[in-house]
């Protein structure tokens, strides 16, 4: 098991201006450490506002953390030189959620891919390389001469993936790559991702709010809530024997095709509220049916060996 990327004690907050003098600090990610092993698919689940996308961008070094560091293949990016950082970032690529925004609407697919090759200072024949990559992502070469609006959502996502793998990355952050797609197309893309990972020896950080999708592609998963990782473990273990009450709630909330009895979800009320991340205790405290006094006063640490959980009663 070789570690590929590691985030250490990452924190990131944003200032939101309310008025000229008043502004609030929203802690998107707070003291999160995450290590991603070469060739694994790490699934990151969480609801909106959990900070999962911000964590993804921090891992890519697309956003600079307020504190903490990113270590890519042993290189601490916060201490590295400009050129080293650029080379490292090229090895870490990204595919975003919205296929309509991830491609420049004014550029033909060929130009989008050409830009990627130019950025990587690719020496060989551009056309040849594009052809192989287009085949890899399951598109015909004819698509090269088209504009994004002439392609369907699934095809645009394939192009975004092609642009990412042109840089010959080792690590790809997939930020909700299938959330904007129809189920039948989603399945195509998921299978393509699995196939590419084998073929090109890739490592993924797969971010999604959809638990069934994450459980389908991931080896390990992490569960985020209001800027914190609450549970990390092997995919099967986390989904079959969740330890954290929030993970239990999430899993029991997923509508399934089997009409299983879901006592937990049906007896739950309450929502994640802004400001809940600033409480001194466990941030799930208000919604947790098992909460005791200690949960209110003391924040639990992420503990455990392989299956880690941040809960006083796990």
């Amino acid at each position: 098991m070789i570690e590929l990327v590691r985030g250490e004690n990452l924190s990131k907050s944003y200032n939101i201006k309310l008025s000229l003098t008043k502004s609030i600090k929203v802690k998107a990610v707070e003291d999160v450490s995450l290590s991603i092993i070469k060739n694994e698919v790490f699934g990151l689940v969480g609801e909106s506002g959990s900070g999962k996308s911000t964590l993804g961008r921090l891992m890519l070094y697309m956003e600079r953390p307020d504190s903490g560091k990113i270590i890519f293949k042993g290189l601490d990016l916060s201490k590295a030189k400009g050129e080293e950082v650029r080379t490292a970032r090229r090895k870490m690529q990204v595919v975003f959620q919205n296929p309509d925004l991830s491609l420049d609407p004014r550029m033909r697919i060929y130009d989008t891919l050409k830009e990627a090759l130019e950025c990587c200072k690719y020496k060989g024949d551009f056309k040849e390389r594009m052809k192989t990559v287009m085949e890899d992502v399951g598109l015909s070469v004819d698509a090269l001469s088209m504009f994004p609006h002439q392609l369907s959502g699934g095809m645009k996502q394939r192009v975004a993936l092609a642009r990412a793998i042109l840089a010959e990355p080792e690590f790809i952050v997939l930020d909700e790559p299938t959330s904007a797609l129809d189920v039948s197309v989603q399945a195509q893309i998921l299978n393509l991702l699995i196939e590419l990972r084998k073929k090109l020896n890739l490592t993924y950080l797969f971010i999604s709010h959809n638990l069934s999708v994450v459980s389908y592609v991931s080896d390990r998963v992490g569960v985020m809530y209001l800027g914190k990782l609450l549970e990390i473990g092997e995919c099967d273990e986390v989904f079959n024997e969740p330890l954290h009450p929030y993970t239990k709630l999430l899993i029991s909330s997923v509508p399934t095709l089997y009409m299983a009895k879901k006592f937990f979800a049906q007896n739950h009320s309450g929502v994640a509220e802004n400001g809940d991340e600033n409480v001194s205790g466990c941030r799930f405290f208000k919604r947790c049916p098992y909460a005791k006094d200690i949960c209110k006063s003391k924040e639990p640490e992420l503990k455990g060996d392989k299956h880690m959980v941040a809960c006083h009663f796990a």
């Binding site: 870490m92 690529q93 975003f96 991830s102 989008t112 990412a164």
Partner: peptide
Amino acid sequence: ELEYVLAAKQLGANSIKIMFRH
């Protein structure tokens, strides 16, 4: 803030190119 600009940055495109191209 659009994704295609972020993607170009991640690829290492320089700012002047991004400004003129995107």
